[in-house]
Design a protein around this nucleic acid. Structure first.
Lengths: 315, 315
DNA sequence: CTGTTAGCGCCTTCAA
DNA sequence: TTGAAGGCGCTAACAG
């Protein structure tokens, strides 16, 4: 890049010493109001911006964080990332993005690179298989999203609450034969917790649970519908919007209009394509914002490792 | 971060001078094989990684690039970003992501920040309204995607080719009343070019063009279908997958199964949800990769400003 | 081939 | 309240 100004230039231009400029730059006390004003004037006039790398070198911090999403095209994760970006920018952090593609190896690889690169912190969208020992070095500078792990800060969704809300709503509407489409228990949050919340509700309300846990993919939802719907089934709860999309396609093809779908996750796509599906918003946006704030606070040593749970809301 | 090793440490540990270590680090010639091996051994043994900020300061380059997408949840842009990330990592660049949300002001804001940050280069997903004078300072370090602009490097899709392929396919299947759903001409590529390619094909083949250019949104596609379909319409070409999704929903609701849909953009979601739609792949993945490579080449002064066009392929 | 020396832009003592 | 000097980790001259 071109000849950028340095504090030395600003110092010369405003007739003071380098250190005074530095003090002004960092809002340090011990500079007379007049001097400060003058220096600031010169800075603005020339659009001066201090060199990041030079500051980083002295301060030991690059002001860089990483966001590791599972997939760039995850609708829910997108909503979370959308809200965290502004937070990071505002705080002067450069957020670099990476994709894990649900592969623990990729995470390991990425974290290795991030460590070598001396990054300040990481937001990691959790998934089944992330090895916690791998994360150990990041304990104080990592925020996990969508999952919790002992000893790590995290921002989770209210899995139980979300399912409960959907079930209650369906129950109130008179449904008594509600099936469930979910994810295997190896996935603790989206899989186990949501399924168990479903079972718990059934038990409490004396309903007969009928569930399948095929996985996260649309196709899996599509294929599994038949296995959980019988002649008297009136409603179907899906653990994720992706599953619901798959299920919905199946129902449409089979002309099973009568079956009421419900699902966790109300993304814009879902709401447009299938406004008839009852959805609950797990609070993706809020989660992203919270995660970013939590990470920044941790980096600055202004916060303990918190385990935050975002409340769900009926959409 | 902790006490990381420096080249000075490595030098001491391997009994050579700092500059020798530096030479090894940068694969410079003029180091005896034996010395090189020894130094490399020490480096590996200690997992040494040079300080980015120090190098940046010396070299005037932070090795940081920015990717400005229009929206994080754009399916097509996601596909492109997915392929460019690995390229940047491999070349040692940190890619930071930003969202323009189709707002020229946001772009201006982001570019300003990036300039102050002294970023090395930018990949910008173009859209209607991006002010070219705004981009002037980035002329040599910017690659525009999905649009071209005089004086800038760009990677574009083959708009004419894509539409032509769809039309030809439909024509071959016997369709003679093919309508078109597109985007206003203020959008030069997705709007004007695709529409004109449609018109051109109609002219050549003596078809009567029936078109509407509502915009990019799903809802707009949904709403506009009725205006371009009559009793004898047998096919409908959509300029984007988003429009096709909207149109498809309308057709489904109206039970207009007979109408053959076709669209530019074959994203995974489309292919799952509507395999019956004829799609053409504009080459999003390839485009991302090319854009990243082009940008890196430009940054290193190894390339002129090229205007690349990605060939489309029937999916 | 290899070591020494001098900064890059900034922050941090230490004197004045 | 201020300026001068030193050094962060690295690279680029210049000597050996």
């Amino acid at each position: 890049m071109q000849n950028r100004l340095t504090i030395k230039d600003i110092a010369r231009l405003s007739g003071v010493g380098k250190s005074t400029v530095s003090r002004v730059l960092n809002n340090e006390s011990g500079v007379s109001a007049r001097t400060r004003e003058r220096v600031e004037a010169v800075m603005n006039q020339h659009g001066f911006a201090p060199s990041r790398s030079a500051r980083a070198m002295r301060g030991q911090s690059d002001k860089v964080v990483a966001i590791i999403v599972t997939r760039l095209d995850s609708l829910s994760e997108n909503l979370a990332v959308q809200t965290m970006l502004p937070v990071f920018y505002e705080q002067g952090y450069d957020p670099i993005m990476m994709e894990s593609q649900f592969s623990p190896e990729k995470v390991a690889e990425h974290l290795g690179m991030l460590r070598r690169r001396n990054v300040d912190g990481v937001v990691l969208f959790g998934f089944t298989g992330v090895n916690e020992t791998l994360l150990a070095p990041w304990q104080s500078t990592l925020v996990m999203l969508a999952r919790d792990a002992a000893g790590f800060a995290s921002v989770c969704y209210d899995d139980e609450g979300a399912i409960q809300m959907l079930m209650q709503r369906l129950y109130d509407q008179g449904h008594r034969h509600i099936s469930f489409l979910g994810v295997p228990h190896s996935d603790v949050t989206t899989g186990k917790r949501r399924h168990e919340a479903y079972l718990a509700f059934c038990k409490t309300h004396r309903l007969t649970p009928v569930a399948a846990l095929p996985g996260l993919a649309m196709k899996q939802g599509y294929d599994a519908v038949a296995t959980v719907t019988g002649p008297d089934t009136t409603a179907l709860v899906c653990a994720t919007d992706t599953l619901a999309l798959g299920a919905s396609k199946y129902l449409q093809e089979q002309r099973l209009d009568a079956l009421q779908l419900a699902s966790v996750g109300s993304t814009p796509l879902m709401k447009f394509l299938h406004p008839e599906i009852i959805t609950v918003d797990p609070g993706y946006g809020k989660a992203g914002q919270q995660a970013a704030q939590q990470l920044v606070a941790q980096i600055n040593g202004r916060s303990d490792l918190q385990q935050i749970v975002i409340p769900a809301t009926l959409a």
